[in-house]
């Protein structure tokens, strides 16, 4: 009996990510959900700019590449033109929380019926480890060698908290992939985000607190521990908005 094997929706190629990068885990979780829901044939993914720019090579569903930060806008167009398709975007923090903030906020405010997988690793990975809008106060990066100084760099953007203030979005949850339990919870959240879209409920975003061993300057194992020590206290995990659950509770 097979306990675990590569999901069919994940392409049989070597991914370009650095050793120990958790992008690979999240790719696999998305592919597992596509397999389980049986929607690989009618799914269109939107790849971002950033480390995951070549995500279009790694999924066996149709993929579109968007301009930097514009994945939610492209996904909006795809979903409105082809309402019977399942549309998801896969974006990093430089893409979604920095250059693409406007697209993200307005797609959420319009409650577009799309699914967004948002990877938060607190750094710009592809360009070599510069400070991102999500970098923690005091975090050392290429462009903040003495640590992020909030007096002139400001404070990190907490995307789930920010979007939860809007009336639009259906479902917002923050998960992590730094241990087995969190990976399993992350998969549940991603599955729910896709099920929401299939049920026509609207905008679902899953923020995945992720690691970047190369640019954090840590071993893969130490990077996962750093998520527990530093990232999760600043970015608490949990459901930030679930309108359906709130309605059901309100009705009781």
């Amino acid at each position: 009996m097979v306990v675990f094997e590569k999901p069919k929706a994940l392409a049989d190629v070597s991914m370009h990510y650095c050793p120990g990068c958790t992008h690979g885990i999240v790719h696999r979780l998305v592919a597992e959900v596509l397999d389980e829901l049986g929607i690989e044939g009618k799914t269109v993914g939107v790849a971002p700019v950033g480390c995951s720019v070549m995500a279009y090579n790694y999924f066996n569903c149709d993929m579109v590449e968007a301009a930097h930060g514009r994945a939610p806008a492209v996904a909006t167009g795809l979903k409105r033109a082809m309402p019977d398709r399942v549309i998801f975007t896969y974006q990093g923090d430089g893409d979604l929380a920095s250059i693409g903030t406007a697209e993200t906020v307005h797609a959420a405010a319009r409650n577009e019926n799309i699914t967004i997988i948002f990877i938060n690793n607190a750094i710009y990975g592809m360009t070599g480890g510069q400070m991102a809008p999500t970098s923690l106060p005091g975090q050392v990066t290429q462009t903040s060698p003495y640590g992020r100084d909030t007096s002139h760099c400001g404070f990190p953007v907490k995307v789930c908290e920010m979007l939860s203030q809007l009336d639009g979005p259906e479902y917002l949850e923050r998960v992590a992939v730094n241990n087995v339990k969190n990976v399993k919870n992350a998969k549940k959240a991603i599955k729910k985000a896709f099920e929401n879209q299939l049920a026509g409920k609207g905008f679902s975003l899953v923020e995945v607190v992720s690691s970047c061993p190369t640019n954090w300057g840590m071993t893969p194992k130490k990077a996962l521990e750093w998520i527990d020590e530093k990232m999760i206290p600043y970015y608490p995990l949990g459901v930030y908005k679930d309108r359906t659950a709130a309605k059901e509770q309100g009705g009781e």
């Binding site: 097979v2 675990f4 094997e5 999901p7 990510y17 690979g24 885990i25 241990n179």
Partner: peptide, 15 residues
């Protein structure tokens, strides 16, 4: 399957 769950490159099959 903890190994396969945490493998970023999905190289492990467990039976």
């Amino acid at each position: 399957a903890f190994c396969a769950t945490m493998c970023p490159d999905c190289i492990i099959t467990v039976e």
